[in-house]
Design a protein around this nucleic acid. Structure first.
Lengths: 198, 198
DNA sequence: CGTCTATTTGAATGTACTCAAAAGCGGTGG
DNA sequence: CCACCGCTTTTGAGTACATTCAAATAGACG
């Protein structure tokens, strides 16, 4: 049984995107299970097929890829009330490129892929929920491309702080450097420079 | 009345993502209208609210933004059988940041936003079509972020040629430079270098 | 307390940019 | 059909932002 507080968190998230009759909402919540993780725990490995999505309640989780020089790139950071998964692998049923790792001990709700797909037929309004989620994820990813092209590293970092307040003090900074697209060394020098000029 | 060939093109596109009864497919096609455009014609201006999506049949259309230094960034290039719109503006009903411009005289099918939203209630399977489109758009946008972070400009250009075969000979190269994230000057030098080394 | 990882620092390097100017190209009108 | 005009592409020189590599320092965790 899922803690009522966590139930409410997920229901509130859904409610922000779509209106649901109580029956459907109950059914949706009945499909997820709760899971506690430790720091550094891996939820999905590169080359595995993603079978689940995770709704983050507490903690922080990253999804990263390796490029052909074996360098890591942090593609997603998820904290309170965000979904995280390897969408490519989830929709294609092929081995993915993402490793999903907990950066802190975390609490998540787990949605099995198969149940998610079943619900689309049973309750079409839930398909709308995920459509709208996808639309928003798509738009914010486009914004990230635009920012990478048009903003300086300092500006991207300021954006990051607005989007993830306080996260810089919770997780290794090299992951933040990777997320905004710079090396850890440059990130370190940049932060120092920003402090001096403020 | 839409040319049967164009009708088929749209139906085939839908068919790649979702199975539809003939009735629903007919209804869907009845919602779009055909439009011929000239080169340099603007379909949507920055700061206007997007009311339509465009399915490109012939020609080439770009969507670009301006950053705070008034530099253009080509966010989308659409050719045969791609949808293009300002998704942010379309879903939020707020003025957008994209200008959508035809780079060649083009043939498009126009889907009014309002009719698209209506159809979600009438035929839930169409909501699935757009959900799946969004999932794919999202995944390929993530891939673009990854490529921008991990590939050299040359590799990004080779990817571009694979994704848009022959387009380099059809449109001003400065747009391609912008799409892959380099200046026109650098793009020119890079192409020269690649020719020499091959 | 010791070990492992993360961060900082510095020097040298490189990739891509800016600015300016010349050359090329294409469309339009005379 | 040619000549012109405007836009695009090319070229070159100088520059900047960010990287790489190496090493020292700091911090976290068992």
């Amino acid at each position: 049984m899922i803690k009522p507080e966590y139930r409410e968190r997920l229901l509130a998230h859904i409610g922000r995107y779509v209106q649901l009759p109580a029956e459907e909402a109950e059914y949706f919540v009945s499909l997820v299970s709760h899971r506690s993780t430790t720091a550094r725990e891996i939820l999905l490995r590169q080359c595995d097929i993603a079978n689940e999505s995770y709704f983050v309640l507490e903690g922080c989780i990253r999804a990263y890829t390796l490029d052909n020089k074996a360098d890591e790139h942090v593609m997603h950071l998820a904290t309170n009330d965000w979904w995280i998964t390897d969408m490519y692998s989830l929709i294609t049923r092929k081995p993915g490129n993402y490793t999903i790792e907990c950066l802190e001990a975390s609490e998540v709700l787990v949605m099995p892929r198969e149940k998610q797909w079943d619900i689309y037929d049973k309750y079409p309004r839930m398909e709308r929920y995920f459509r709208v989620l996808m639309e928003n994820a798509y738009v914010s990813t486009l914004q990230r491309i635009h920012d990478n092209l048009s903003l300086s590293a300092e500006e991207r970092y300021l954006n990051f702080e607005r989007k993830f307040p306080g996260l810089v003090h919770r997780i290794p900074n090299k992951h933040i450097a990777s997320y905004i697209g710079v090396t850890p060394e440059f990130f370190s020098k940049m932060k120092k420079r920003m402090l001096k000029n403020s």
